[in-house]
Amino acid sequence: MRMAAVFSKDERLRHIGHLDIMRAMQRALRRSGLPVSYSQGFNPHILLGFASALSTGAASERELMEVTLRGEVSAEEFLRRMNAALPPQMQLVRCFPLEEKGPALMSLVRAARWRVELLGEGAAAIAAAVPAFLQQEEIPSIRKTKSGEKEINLRPWIYSLSADGGTLHATLALSEQANCKPDMLVRALAAFAGTEAPRMLATREELMGEDPAGQLIPLEVLLSPCEDS
């Protein structure tokens, strides 16, 4: 069976990169004693998929992953056993079974909701600049790709943005084609406000998918519509 699990990555672990988090999760699955499935081949690995790679430097409240199991396990048991096997800084928040033949989680992600705390000088100026910033039709930015740097327009990738004191709340595009990371947003904001980019602490609050009508909805709701999250 396929089990979806929502987990958090605390601030203390924000510098741990995606590959390391993946390995830590694999080891936690092994510690949990849950009947996980392994890939075939020379170096068997646990069948585990993440909805999205979280950037190094960011914390998260609700990351999503899927695990393939050899037998039926209840969501409650999965949660209990995993949390006993995970460090306190990385805990499951919730889990639920997935449709056997459903698409990979990664293919369903469209956006992410972020909370970005701005620290130090420049934070106030940036927060004040948000309304005018959003009035722009073009927000030039640089996207780093494997082949080099590419100039892009950030504006269509910012679905929502507001400031609350020194904290930004944003829903930003997240897919292979369109990906706006919080540091790109903050750099663009700082440039617009004419200040240095301040230190920031980004926390991903939720991953978003798209309902049949094309509206953004939390990925968890899309995957398990009947359950309260």
Binding site: L13, H15, R31
Partner: peptide, 12 residues
């Protein structure tokens, strides 16, 4: 390599 300094590893 910030993870050298962060701690919070399993079983610590």
């Amino acid at each position: 390599k910030a993870p050298r300094y962060t701690g919070g590893e399993m079983n610590t």
